[in-house]
Amino acid sequence: MTELSDVSRTAVGVARLRALETNRPDRLFADPYASAFVPEGTPDNRAGTSVFRLHIVIRTRFYDDYLLAATAAGCRQVVLVAAGLDTRAFRLSWPAGLRLYELDLPALLAYKEKVLTAEGATPSVARTVVPVDLREDWPGALRAAGFDPTVPTAWLVEGLLVYLTAEDAAKLLTSVTDLSAPGSQVACEHRDADGQHSPGRMAKATPDLAPLTAMWKGGIPTFDWLAGHGWKVESHNGNTLAAGYGRDTDGPTGNFVIGTRA
């Protein structure tokens, strides 16, 4: 894991939180590989757990449901942008004939493949890994890997945009838009207007999380951007989602958007 960048290492922290949820008797999802991504002796970041645990749990479950609903509705491709240590290709039940693509930095994906191979993990979908820097020509790399822009696609941009400048976030979403056939969908986080339920705001107020928040560049107001670029957008409040899942809202949950391409 020493070869991972600081940003990539945050994926290990997210895997730890998924592992904690998996061990709960009332878990909202099961990720049997999450704990394998966390090396023994890795210190527990209590501040990070306190601020982000509920957010990561609700986010993971919400995006699970989104992807399964989008593929059931006709999306025949799934693209996980900045896939990190996501294991949905292995732990979800996908429709037949689906293709799933995972994009992320080469070192992170190499670490991921090493762990999954050691665990004997077998994907439940046709899975293609695309090692690429998202600051470079990732659309070209995705096409070269077999992606078909004429086929409706379910995109997931999870936990990424806050690490990008507004300019870079807009560039990425423009590429997603350009590659999206009618009927495609995209999901990502978006900032709460008043910040009341924002894990980001709490993180910035937590001194122990300063190394993490120093990497954030702000991202972009995704609801407004998508609505202004040909997507029909709906927003989802994290606290409402948590209540619907039967989980007490004992921490910041964040909010989410789903866009549909007409």
Rank of each mutant, 00 (worst) to 15 (best):
W231A: 02
V78K: 03
S50P: 01
Y63G: 01
G146K: 11
V57W: 08
G159W: 02
Y163L: 00
L226E: 03
S8K: 05
W155R: 08
D133W: 09
R18G: 01
V186E: 03
G238Y: 04
A214W: 06
R18Q: 05
T260N: 03
K171V: 10
V57F: 05
V132I: 15
V162M: 12
D250V: 08
L68Y: 04
D168R: 12
A214N: 12
F29V: 04
P152R: 08
L226Y: 05
M215C: 03
D6G: 13
L68I: 13
P39A: 02
T165M: 07
R27K: 10
A47F: 00
K232W: 07
I56N: 07
A69W: 02
A118P: 01
L20V: 13
V38L: 12
P43G: 01
A11W: 09
R27H: 15
V233F: 10
L164A: 03
R91L: 04
V157Q: 05
P131K: 08
A243M: 13
C188W: 00
A118G: 15
A242Q: 10
D178M: 06
A242R: 09
V130S: 03
Y163T: 04
A141D: 10
P106F: 06
S93G: 00
A89T: 08
A34I: 08
V129A: 07
T71C: 15
D44G: 05
Y63M: 14
D6P: 04
